[in-house]
Amino acid sequence: MVSLEIPAEYGYVLLAATSTFFVGSWLGGRVTSFRKAAKVPYPYEYASYEQVQTASPPASKAMLQFNCAQRAHQNFNENHVSALGAMLIAGLKYPMAAAVLGGVWSVNRVVYAIGYTNGAEGGKGRYYGVLWMLAHYVMIGMAGKAAWDLAMA
């Protein structure tokens, strides 16, 4: 049987993990504000292509920004569980690296979301925050290594 010892630095991993909850809440709030500006009622998740194309230029822009904010939030939701899990697992063996990568992930999710809604054609501003993806996959690799080492101990 393997005993598991939590490293003293694991608190930093937990702080980085907690930062992701604040980012998710912030993203949800942004979607709400963009929804109001675009006048897209609940329960509709996005403004349709037809709505965007037939709206006045200011309304069309507001709808596009809402769609981009919604998509940034959805992308966060799609990746949050695997990033959080990888961060927590990797932190068992590599606490400082996992904490730093988790912080990079959170900060770049904010940059991604702001870039997505900055008005660039097709949300191309999201690429400014693409570093989240590198941090994400490195954490997954580190989690795999930590899990392997634990299983082989």
Rank of each mutant, 00 (worst) to 15 (best):
Y44C: 00
K93N: 09
N75P: 03
N67P: 09
V31M: 00
F76K: 00
Q70V: 07
E78H: 02
T20H: 14
N67M: 02
N79M: 09
Y94A: 03
Q74K: 11
E45D: 11
V81R: 15
V52G: 06
A69L: 01
V81M: 15
V40F: 03
Q51V: 03
N67T: 05
F76A: 02
M87G: 10
A86P: 06
A37W: 10
A47R: 02
V104D: 09
Y49F: 10
V52T: 13
Q74I: 10
K36Y: 12
W26A: 09
F22T: 10
Q65I: 08
V23C: 00
V104T: 15
K61Y: 10
E45P: 01
V100M: 12
V31I: 05
M96V: 14
S56Q: 13
T32V: 12
F22D: 06
T54R: 14
C68V: 07
A69N: 02
E45C: 04
V52L: 08
T54I: 12
T20F: 08
P41K: 11
L92E: 05
C68E: 15
P58T: 14
S82N: 08
S56Y: 13
P43S: 03
V52Y: 00
V100Y: 15
M63G: 04
L84G: 14
A62V: 08
R35Q: 06
S48A: 05
Y42N: 12
P43W: 03
A62T: 11
H73L: 04
Y49I: 11
L92K: 10
G24S: 10
T32K: 12
G28D: 03
V52H: 04
A38T: 06
W26D: 05
E78Y: 00
S48V: 04
F34L: 08
L27F: 00
Y49K: 14
G29C: 05
P58C: 12
Y94K: 01
G91Y: 05
E50M: 08
G24V: 01
V31T: 03
A90V: 02
P41M: 08
L92T: 03
Q74S: 11
N67L: 04
L88N: 04
C68S: 13
Q53G: 05
N77A: 12
Y42C: 07
L92V: 06
H80F: 13
V40C: 00
R35I: 01
Y49A: 13
A55Q: 11
F34G: 04
G28A: 03
S60T: 02
A55T: 06
A62D: 09
E45S: 13
L92R: 07
N67A: 04
Q53I: 13
V81Q: 15
G28L: 00
V23D: 01
V40N: 00
